[in-house]
Design a protein around this nucleic acid. Structure first.
Length: 673
DNA sequence: AGCACGCCGACT
DNA sequence: GTCGGCGTGCTC
């Protein structure tokens, strides 16, 4: 190796160099910058510490990501100050933040802001509480030990092997005194295996409620006080305190919401992520990363085990399973059916024909009515009704097939032209559809969207006047119900947790849920339904579930069969055929009309990319007056990287040229409509 | 030739 | 937002 003579500074000391990641959100300045370290700061500068420096004509905060021997350029500006010597952006996080930024066509600074919580000086100065080391003594049974290959997976985690799996958890209420969900058992088993091998562990869940539940289970098993939590409801001090416990290597087990995916748990043995289909795991701030992808990137980079778990399986998980990147864990449907509550389909078109006047008055098929009546004899009964007021997709009147654009396969909406006239246009490419006819059954009639489940709930309450009626929805969520019989009506996601499981559940208006205006409507409905099933006692403890809707529909069928893997396979192959994510990589570009035109004049998409639109869209950000337009671009998944690089390059060029107007780029947007 | 000014691009 | 490099064009 060649030795390069460094110019000697005369006194024999060289000014140190600090390589910084700065809070600069301009895409064309998305890289590290070197600064000289003035003598007065030399003692404080640490790798990973928070600093301030002048860049691009203003001061910016940032972190030290390197202390190189030589700078990339000759003339260096000096660091302005060291905000704190505490290392908070650790070396292991740097490639992760870079990879996430690159995957989402975003900047390092954008992701850095999501990863490191704001500093809380008093907390940093305070004496650190002792964090006992975790001790996996009494790991509960059930969970992963009950499914095929589950034990092998746990053994591999215990041997520090970077195994990866998707686990379909058993959807039923576990009727033992512990009250633990099956999935929390499986997760604590995986964490226990990693901890037993001397590693740290990270558990990501969609919301704070589940953070607390998972935290309590982990503490009960691994010892009190050894588990840290990270989520937005903590407040600045607790949030920073817990982050420091992790970054200082004190807390070895962390459970948190999506932001915790980046937390610098030392020597990770396993990452567990629950319910990737929950849209709370998708970050609403730029560059809109999904915790599922962050976890996947991180597990690869840090060579740790990865466990995804959910009741239903998303098409994204299925795509990874189908390539062998993830091992599928679970039970064959026949075995699941023996352990879970039985699910039966009741057809809602029979309502008007039925004899039972009470059932008819409540607008519920007789079988579902009987499910409720019988269930109320032994405990609370859950009735899930679709949320009122969501957009309904246009579908065929006869066979309910959703209307899709014949050119690009995108979703179709109806624009009112006045005088009762309406025009069908594609929401992606903007083309008008003339003389639509259903490609499946040939019908020319469109289904008129109907809503009105809330009324059904009220009528149900009147049909069972002697029972307590509990109503839970997004406006007023009821957390828990007891063991006494009660009729519990809830919208998806607002189901109260039963103390000892529901004795029965009824899923109303399945057809309505399936026609929601989103290409993921079937997958999302299936996920919501299995969540309800998971709250119901198993068949041998008297639990039953009725789904009211089109019994022949394949999502309803997959529910009756309790076959999430089979459903996911079908869903993925449908998306492959239709050209939807995850079979393709999709990029949505949103801006006002002029800005979007400017972006398009700059961007050079790969030749295989297909541009759809632009089309005007309803503005989701309140307060803005400008009409937003959206361009969709898609490409085969294998060329997804080139698509993202092209978008990213265009953003850089626009920011370097100081072009006015904001452009929002989303890679694989979570809502597809 | 030498300097002032202004534009444009880079920003350590 | 600010700085500096470079080209233009004016002046000595």
């Amino acid at each position: 190796m060649m030795t390069i003579q460094q110019p000697d500074g005369g006194a024999g000391t060289h000014p140190g160099i600090a390589r910084l990641a700065l809070d600069v959100y301009l895409p064309h300045l998305d890289r590290f910058f070197d600064y000289s370290i003035p003598d007065r700061l030399a003692q404080q500068v640490q790798l990973g510490c928070r600093v301030r420096a002048r860049i691009a004509g203003r001061m910016a905060n940032g972190f030290v990501v390197g202390l190189p021997a030589r700078a990339e350029v000759d003339k260096l500006s000096p660091l302005d100050r060291v905000i704190s010597p505490e290392p908070v952006l650790l070396a292991q996080q740097v490639p992760l933040l870079r990879a996430v930024a690159d995957h989402y066509a975003g900047t390092f600074a954008d992701v850095m802001r999501l990863a490191v919580p704001p500093r809380h000086a008093a907390t940093e100065a305070a004496e650190q509480n002792p964090w006992p080391a975790p001790d996996a003594r009494d790991v509960p049974g059930g969970g992963l030990t009950e499914v095929d290959d589950g034990r092998r997976f746990l053994d591999a985690v215990g041997q520090s092997r970077p195994v990866r799996a998707h686990w379909c958890a058993l959807p039923r209420w576990r009727s033992d005194e512990s009250g633990l969900d099956d999935w929390t058992r499986g997760f604590v088993q995986a964490v226990g295996a990693a901890v037993g091998a001397g590693h740290g562990a990270l558990v990501i869940v969609p919301d704070v409620d589940r953070v607390r539940r998972m935290r309590d289970v982990l503490r009960a098993v691994l010892g009190p006080g050894c588990v840290a939590e990270l989520h937005s409801e903590l407040g600045p001090a607790a949030r920073y305190r817990n982050y420091l416990a992790v970054s200082r290597g004190q807390a070895r087990v962390l459970v948190g919401t999506r932001g915790a995916s980046y937390a610098p748990v030392h020597d990770l043995g396993v990452i567990c992520l629950w319910d990737d289909g929950d849209d709370l795991l998708s970050e609403p701030r730029a560059p809109y990363p999904h915790a599922r992808d962050v976890a996947a990137l991180r597990a690869t980079q840090e060579s740790c085990a990865l466990l995804f778990g959910s009741y239903a399986r998303t098409a994204e998980m299925q795509a990874w399973v189908s390539t062998g990147w993830l091992v599928p864990l679970g039970l064959a449907p026949a075995r699941t059916r023996r352990l879970a509550p039985p699910v039966r389909a009741a057809v809602d078109s029979d309502i008007d024909l039925q004899r039972d006047p009470m059932a008819a008055a409540a607008r519920v098929p007789k079988e579902a009515f009987e499910t409720i009546r019988t269930g109320l004899l032994s405990g609370p009964v859950l009735v899930q009704v679709p949320r009122a007021g969501y957009l309904v997709a246009l579908s065929c009147q006869r066979c309910r097939t959703p209307v899709r654009c014949p050119t690009c396969g995108g979703p179709v909406g109806a624009d009112r032209l006045g005088a009762g006239q309406r025009r069908l246009t594609c929401r992606w490419c903007g083309r008008s559809l003339n003389n639509w006819s259903c490609p499946v059954c040939g019908s020319r009639e469109l289904r008129a969207p109907v809503v009105g489940s809330q009324r059904t709930a009220e009528e149900l309450g009147r049909a069972f006047p002697s029972f307590r009626l509990v109503s839970s929805s997004a406006q007023k969520v009821v957390d828990q119900v007891g063991t006494t019989p009660a009729l519990v009506v809830a919208t998806p996601g607002a189901e109260p947790r039963p103390e000892a499981g529901y004795s029965a559940a009824v899923l109303l208006d399945a057809g309505l849920m399936l026609t929601r205006a989103d290409l993921r409507a079937a997958e999302e409905s299936y996920r919501r339904w299995l969540t309800v099933v998971s709250l119901v006692r198993s068949g041998d403890h008297g639990g039953t579930v009725s789904v009211v809707g089109p019994a022949e529909e394949r999502t309803v069928q997959a529910l009756v069969r309790l076959d999430p893997a089979g459903f996911a396979e079908r869903e993925l192959s449908d998306r492959q055929a239709a050209g939807f994510p995850p079979a393709v990589r999709m990029v949505a570009v949103e801006a006002d009309e002029k800005t979007l035109a400017d972006f398009r004049s700059v961007v050079e998409w790969p030749s295989d990319a297909q541009e759809l639109g632009p089309v005007p869209i309803a503005d989701s950000t309140p307060g803005s007056t400008e009409q937003l337009w959206r361009l969709m671009v898609r490409i085969d998944r294998t060329m997804g990287g080139e698509l993202i690089v092209a978008a990213r390059r265009a953003l850089s060029i626009r920011s370097a040229r100081k072009r006015p107007g904001a452009v929002r780029v989303r890679v694989d947007p979570i809502e597809l409509f």
